[in-house]
């Protein structure tokens, strides 16, 4: 129960900051804001019940630079292929089996793949992700494994589980 209260408090904190960003320093807006934040927090707890995984701050700090760097490379990569006078595409499909558990971790992983250089998650079926790649010559495996470990660190999932699969 203490845990539940903590979750509820965190969601209230989250939605309050969103409301604050949206409306600025106008204090009268909180007449609508307080009920809205409470209702949103209650609804979000019903619709998206708290998972057993907690996000680690250290993981976020490691993930952000990794993500920004990789998506920048992705943008450069696409720009190079789009603007080059020669046809630089060699697309193909790859299947990847992830050790990430079902739920938010896996969905987050699948969505982030699309922002990595040259990869796009086309299908998520159980623990296997079908990935469409722009160029089969790219180091896709290394990139995706890097992402997988970062997501695991973000959600405090032990990557040792890989050996069992």
């Amino acid at each position: 129960m203490i845990n539940f209260n903590r979750r509820f408090f965190l969601r209230i904190l989250f939605f309050s900051s969103v409301w604050f960003i949206l409306t600025g320093v106008d204090t009268t807006s909180w007449m609508v804001g307080v009920p809205a934040v409470l209702i949103a927090s209650g609804l979000s707890l019903t619709l998206a019940p708290p998972s057993q995984y907690r996000i680690s701050l250290v993981g976020v700090c490691c993930f952000m630079p990794f993500f920004l760097r990789q998506s920048f490379h992705g943008g450069i990569d696409v720009m190079r292929r789009a603007l080059s006078s020669r046809q630089l595409l060699d697309p193909g499909l790859v299947s990847y089996t992830t050790f990430l558990p079902e739920g938010s971790a896996r969905i987050f992983f699948a969505n982030t793949i699309s922002l990595l250089p040259g990869t796009l998650s086309a299908e998520l079926h159980g623990n296997s992700v079908t990935i469409h790649t722009l160029d089969r010559g790219l180091p896709i495996w290394a990139n995706i494994q890097g992402l997988e470990y970062h997501v695991a660190a973000l959600m405090r999932i032990s990557p040792v589980k890989r050996k069992n699969l």
Binding site: S71, G74, L134
Partner: peptide
């Protein structure tokens, strides 16, 4: 690929 990556960056 082109749209998602380039536009987000």
């Amino acid at each position: 690929h082109a749209l998602t990556k380039a536009d987000n960056v």
